[in-house]
Design a protein around this nucleic acid. Structure first.
Lengths: 231, 231
DNA sequence: CGGGTCGTTGACTCGAATCAATATAGGTGG
DNA sequence: CCACCTATATTGATTCGAGTCAACGACCCG
């Protein structure tokens, strides 16, 4: 975010920040309380969770390093944000940030750009939830996480075009909450992907995408592929 | 939107607008083309549609009168916007609007406020798609449309607390595309709501909510209610 | 008034949920 | 360091809600 700012704005922003560590599982802000501070993620993953009175939960977004966390210009949010992993945050107080935003239009502009991008992502997510099979959902989630955690393709060595390893920041249960599935269903789809040689796992959270192309196929074509490419 | 602007900004904005009529079914902007103009809806309803190569569609948002349509600060959008009904729009060219935004920070601020609200709505929608039954989905959609089309409760006469009539801006097929369902399923849930006396219909699109409280119950408790309140 | 689209209903199928039984990882205390 | 213990994960059997396929009916248009 700071990359998009002018010199003066960046230093003004830097002057009101402080670093913070949050351990996995902690709630950063809850639906009930008012949201009075913001942060940018240095490392770790945050999940945005909607919870209904009857206990049903849906993870409606994941925020990765460099992403913004918080809900500016509103006292309360219907969401809560929780640390999926241990986090390192760059925090600023809400009042100071909003005052700064009023003073430096480029900060507000950067936030608008980001919010519009988040909105696009949220709408892509709606398609995923509404119109795809369980296999497509799991494959898409793995692809998104792999891309965000392994960095853009340019960062990876070109001589190892396949085989992207990463530590999954979510439990099976949390994956299910992302995708509108049950965790048993997530398990079955992971087993399916493993048996087709598309991914490999070791331990509970260490994943490797062996064949990214095949994973992307699953992302869009699960039924057809399953029909003619059964092992 | 204009309500949130300063005097000068509002007149500057007004100077670059023009009115436009769009007939039902027309595409306002498509996923392929670049988006080079924006609009505020005067009357009618716009649907935001995601389409995948294999033909699957998901409506990821509805925009009602006073809402903003378009994707500022990006050349292309992954969505297309289509007129669900005949529209009356207040349009401005993209270039002029973005230039104006750079000059008048309060215009950008108003857009940010709106975009953040849209993001909240998109995330609520994700919960609906991922974690609710068919009945809850249909009931929620009817409730949202009733509220937006009938105006806020304060506008309705207090001596008729129940019975909100409106013309549904969507076909059964479009309702299904909103909710991640098939149109037959939407039909069955509507029949269910009618048989329980919660709504009434006349013709294909004229709806009346007879018991808003019961509809709101369905919104959150469909399974439990269905179990102990069968007719 | 006739034709065609859209909507409704019914019969059946299928994918994911649910219920249940193990299995493994990973942490803890001896 | 190892054995145990509990969370989490995997797999299996069965159920159930929504999807699919098909026929019929009603509304709206010309």
């Amino acid at each position: 975010m700071c990359g998009a700012l002018r010199e003066g704005s960046a230093t003004a922003l830097a002057s009101i920040t402080h670093r913070m560590r949050v351990s996995a599982g902690r709630t950063i802000y809850g639906a009930a309380e008012s949201v009075r501070s913001f942060a940018i993620i240095i490392s770790g993953v945050v999940k945005l969770v909607t919870t209904k009175p009857d206990g049903r939960q849906q993870i409606v977004g994941l925020q990765f390093p460099a992403d913004f966390v918080g809900r500016p210009l509103a006292d309360r949010s219907s969401l809560s944000a929780e640390a999926a992993t241990t986090l390192e945050l760059c925090c600023f107080s809400g009042r100071a940030f909003e005052a700064l935003m009023a003073e430096h239009p480029d900060i507000e502009h950067a936030l608008l750009t980001r919010t519009l991008a988040d909105l696009d992502l949220a709408r892509d997510w709606a398609f995923l939830l509404g119109r795809t099979t369980a296999l497509e959902k799991v494959a898409t989630l793995l692809q998104i996480i792999a891309e965000r955690l392994a960095g853009p393709p340019a960062c990876r060595s070109p001589d190892v075009p396949r085989g992207i390893g990463f530590a999954l920041p979510l439990s099976r249960m949390e994956m299910a909450e992302c995708l509108g599935l049950r965790f048993e269903t997530v398990c079955r789809q992971l087993t399916h992907l493993k048996s087709r040689g598309i991914i490999a796992t070791s331990g509970r959270r260490q994943f490797e995408v062996l064949d990214m192309d095949a994973l992307k196929q699953c992302t869009a074509n699960a039924p057809a592929l399953a029909a003619d490419a059964v092992i």
